[in-house]
């Protein structure tokens, strides 16, 4: 009856996959963050890399609230600079992703892809400030990564960058979900992990 409610075991699995997800994506972000150009590719590349993790997580824990836990914590971590609109945007993306996955009963592959695409919009939230509060963002970047990094970034980043990054994130997530399902088929279904 209560098939879709999270039990203790699901919560523990969620915590474990949360750790894996955060560690993998932080690793990728740290590598990409070294130069200004690759720094802008984070929303494209991170969803591709963590796609398999996300699809394994969702097939291990196909319960309502699974995406919610992951999404809220990832949003808070990636907006640790405290930009409140970024947090709100990330929370909305998470809830929508959860509802879409729920509509597919956490089984449908198409619904999973769409849900993952919406979910990946979280990775654009740190860049939201670039469009909406450009000066504040550049000040903060100068403080954290040095004035030179900020100058280079300011010189070639146009004002509409946030919207372009949304498109990039959607493309990345589409590739990532395809990749994730391939990986699941190739490695996990055979090994009987599911």
């Amino acid at each position: 009856m209560n098939q879709t409610k999270m039990k203790t075991k699901d919560l523990i699995l969620a915590g474990a996959f949360l750790a894996l997800y955060c560690v993998v994506s932080l690793g990728v972000i740290m590598v990409l963050g070294f130069t200004p150009i690759t720094f802008l590719l984070v929303p494209l590349i991170v969803p591709i890399v963590v796609g398999p993790v996300f699809s394994l997580y969702l097939s291990k824990v196909p319960k309502s609230g699974a995406i919610l836990i992951l999404g809220i914590i990832v949003t808070l971590l990636s907006n640790s600079t405290g930009y409140i609109y970024g947090i709100i945007f990330g929370a909305i993306a998470t809830v929508v992703a959860e509802l879409i996955a729920k509509a597919g009963k956490y089984k449908s592959k198409q619904m999973f892809s769409i849900s993952y695409m919406v979910f990946s919009l979280i990775y654009t939230t740190p860049y939201m400030m670039m469009t909406l509060a450009r000066n504040a963002f550049m000040e903060k970047t100068a403080m954290i990564s040095g004035q030179e990094f900020a100058d280079v970034l300011a010189s070639f980043v146009p004002n509409w960058i946030f919207y372009a990054l949304i498109v990039l994130a959607l493309i990345g997530a589409a590739i990532g979900s395809f990749f994730g399902q391939r990986v699941m088929k190739k490695h996990f279904e055979k090994a009987g992990i599911l």
Binding site: M6, T8, L11, I12, A14, G15, A16, L18, A19, L20, C22, V23, G65, I69, I73
Partner: peptide, 14 residues
């Protein structure tokens, strides 16, 4: 508890 258990496991898992 739905928040407590994942966070506790998260710290244990890293």
């Amino acid at each position: 508890d739905s928040v407590v258990i994942p966070i506790a496991v998260f710290f244990r898992f890293v």
